[in-house]
Design a protein around this nucleic acid. Structure first.
Length: 665
RNA sequence: GCGCCCGUAGCUCAGUUGGAUAGAGCGGCUGGCUUCGAACCAGUAGGUCGGGAGUUCGAAUCUCUCCGGGCGCACCA
């Protein structure tokens, strides 16, 4: 609601500048900025536009501001505009009209939705071990961004890429076969025996670390990896069979882990199909045909197909460090395959996967997985896969350390003349999750002397160094359960546990979202386990309290008023003359603005911050206005309406963050 | 060596794209449950925005430079 007013004011000023001042903003190089005044007493909105115009119009900002206010005239919903300071235009809204519009559920201006499809790829965990805290940051960030885009009206497809034929899977297979002398049947038995106390993904976590260490101690054993990779690629033999067993089982583990946090996918494109359907071959032809890569005849890259560095670096340091795309032995590198995959996402490869149903979520939503062969024609209609890929915008949620490779992929598109798609390939990067030294101590991890001096230590699957996602969630649930039990001892244990789970997941999601993407999270149990202050549970608690007031009203035998008939615009104006109530309503009506800004900046953290502000504001409201015992009827009805409005706004915001609201706290 | 990111209160972090007196949480101190549940609220202390120079009406924000920290720069993924 607030957001549509903002845009209305913006366009009024824009039009006025064009018509009466001859200023075209797109030419002038700036747009009308609307900000929140430093002090609430200044007004509801502030425009510093006069400052920006001062130079080109060669007039004092104060005078420009005055002329501008005069020229703009009246704007619906705006009560007054005043000049302040050196030339600020402070806007005061028509409170009664604002409240009335909110009450009637006035049209929330939905930004003209992009008609095309957006792909967001996230999670992408190598299917060879349990997920850890770093993977959670990726998935929560990606999932939240998806929710943001969908709320804004965009069509979004969520992809989770599965590298089931890579080195990491091979290393676990090496561990099973060469170190533990297990057969595929043995591994299948381990998978079947998977339970809380013998988790297959945890077992692989340890085995992977052990294999990595073994390579270090016995470098000759790396030949096992090469042999395994070779057989996996060829697609037959015991090692290949085992790789399939491991990868498929671990993918199921990951999906289950992520579902605990409400994270879902539409499709799982797999590396094995990229190989079998020869995606690379098509891409290779295209790259050669359009001269995006060339065959190196000399130097250290002799015999390789390379992309010149000028394609992905500044032109100044051309000829330096070209990127090898195809090795001298004829095998394509990871980046090469990634270019093919990126082309597929845009529907530019001229090839597609086949698909089959993988799993269904409890509500029936289907996850699809790629296959190399068409589904049989007897398949039922519900087995018909939707059209995947063919996006016009692609977000790849990948940590910042892969920036260089993402640049090469985009350069590949550009070199193929897919300029627009290159422009719309967005590396949604984020910093890593590291472990604080104290956290390592908590985990009983011994650090080398130099590591101990560092501000934080990088998580490493290879070293088995990290906090497993499910362990962390379990720990959070236990902690939350303690809090719940102390307040609701009389309640059935199952309900207590369900509530504790929602609180724990809310805490975890919020914790991972409150940091901006460029911030390294030095993970700390104490902070992550906190339920007070700027946390998910704080926001959930505010929502539960708002609901409780309305519930209490009915428990006392009072009906919820019919706000439409009891609250006229006049009574809204009367009630909103109360400065505190007005300021609180303003904050509560800014979900749209907050979402818009968070999408524009690509920072889910901004929305998380707003959720906290909203909850804080409600807590103040709760404290300041006793509602149920309010003697004045009009005021009571108004306060009840505010309470409901707060509850809805809190629920909306939390839903976008993927945080649920427990029945009680 | 080159590139990217970070440096803001004791600690952990925001800062609406250059705007008004730099904010929040935690921790510290003081106070508030016989009220719609205190996982809450109110008050208070705490700042050369890493240092320096520049750009302009105006800089935590942009430029340069120095200092400190992190991450990249494979015929690995």
């Amino acid at each position: 609601m607030f957001h549509s007013l903002e845009t209305r004011i913006q366009s009024a000023f824009r039009a006025c500048l064009a018509d009466k001042f001859g200023v075209q903003l797109d030419i002038a190089g700036f747009d009308i900025v609307i900000e929140q005044p430093k002090q609430t007493s200044f007004g509801d909105l502030a425009l510093p536009v006069a400052f920006q115009l001062a130079k080109s119009l060669k007039q004092a900002p104060r005078k420009i501001a005055a002329d501008l206010v005069e020229a703009v005239g009246t704007i619906p919903g705006v009560a007054a505009m005043e000049i302040a300071g050196n030339g600020y235009i402070n806007v005061r809204l028509d409170r009664g009209a604002f409240g009335a519009a909110l009450l009637s559920g006035g049209p929330e201006a939905v930004a003209a939705a992009d008609p095309g499809k957006t792909i967001v790829e996230h999670t992408n965990i190598n299917p060879n071990k349990a997920a850890h805290i770093g993977h959670l940051r990726n998935a929560v960030l990606g999932d939240t961004f998806v929710r943001m885009l969908r709320t804004a009206g965009r069509t979004v497809e969520v992809q989770n890429y599965i590298d089931n034929t890579g080195v990491q899977v091979a290393d676990v297979v090496v561990g099973f076969h060469f170190l533990e002398h297990k057969t595929p049947a043995d591994v299948a038995a381990l998978i079947a025996a998977d339970s809380k106390h013998a988790r297959f993904d945890y077992l692989c976590w340890d085995l992977y670390a052990r294999t990595s260490q073994y390579y270090k101690d016995n470098p000759d054993s790396l030949a096992w990896r090469a042999q395994t990779l070779h057989e996996v690629e060829a697609g037959h033999g015991e090692l290949a069979e085992m790789a399939h067993l491991v990868a498929d089982a671990i993918v199921d583990c990951h999906l289950a882990t992520m579902l605990r946090l409400g994270i879902r996918y539409n499709v799982l494109p797999r590396e094995s199909e990229i190989l079998h359907l020869k995606f690379w071959a098509s891409c290779f032809e295209l790259l050669k045909e359009r001269k995006a890569i060339y065959f190196e005849e000399e130097g250290k890259n002799k015999g390789c197909w390379v992309m010149p560095s000028s394609a992905f670096r500044g032109a100044d340091e051309a000829n330096e460090d070209s990127k090898v795309i195809v090795r001298s032995n004829g095998i394509v590198t990871y980046v090469g395959k990634d270019i093919a995959y990126q082309l597929w996402k845009f529907g530019l490869l001229g090839k597609d996967f086949f698909y089959k149903p993988h799993t269904a979520y409890p509500d029936g939503q289907q996850v699809w997985v790629s296959t190399a062969t068409p589904q049989s024609e007897t398949s039922q209609i519900e087995n018909q896969a939707p059209a995947f890929g063919k996006a016009d915008t692609v977000y790849n949620v990948i940590d910042v350390r892969q920036s260089y490779l993402q640049d090469v992929v985009v350069a590949g598109l550009r070199a193929l003349d897919f300029e627009q798609q290159a422009e719309r390939s967005i590396h949604f990067s984020y910093e890593m999750v590291a472990l604080s030294p104290r956290c390592c101590a908590d985990l009983g991890i011994e650090l080398s002397e130099e590591d101990a001096k560092r501000p934080y230590v990088e998580v490493s699957g290879r070293k088995g160094l990290g906090v497993k996602a499910d362990d962390l969630m379990d720990k959070l649930i236990e902690s939350a359960l303690g809090e719940v039990a102390s307040r609701h001892a009389e309640d059935p244990v199952e309900t207590q546990r369900a509530v504790a789970t929602e609180i724990a997941m809310g805490a975890l999601r919020y914790f991972l979202l409150k940091f901006t993407r460029t911030t390294v999270i030095a993970f700390d149990f104490q902070e992550a386990l906190s339920f007070v202050g700027e946390t998910g549970p704080y926001v959930q608690y505010a929502t539960v309290r708002a609901r409780n007031i309305l519930k209490k009203l009915q428990e006392r035998g009072e009906a919820l008023p019919d706000f439409g008939t009891e609250l006229s615009a006049e009574s809204m104006a009367r009630q909103l003359a109360n400065e505190d109530a007005w300021q609180m309503l303003l904050v509560a009506s800014k979900v749209g603005s907050a979402l818009d800004r968070a999408i524009a900046t690509g920072e889910p953290a901004h929305l998380a911050k707003y959720a906290f502000l909203l909850a804080q504001t409600f807590s103040n409201f709760y404290q300041e206005f006793p509602i149920l015992i309010e003697p004045d009827r009009e005021k009571k009805v108004f306060l009840l309406w505010m309470t409901g409005f707060f509850a809805r706004q809190l629920e909306r915001t939390l839903a976008i963050l993927g945080i649920t609201v427990p029945v009680y706290m």
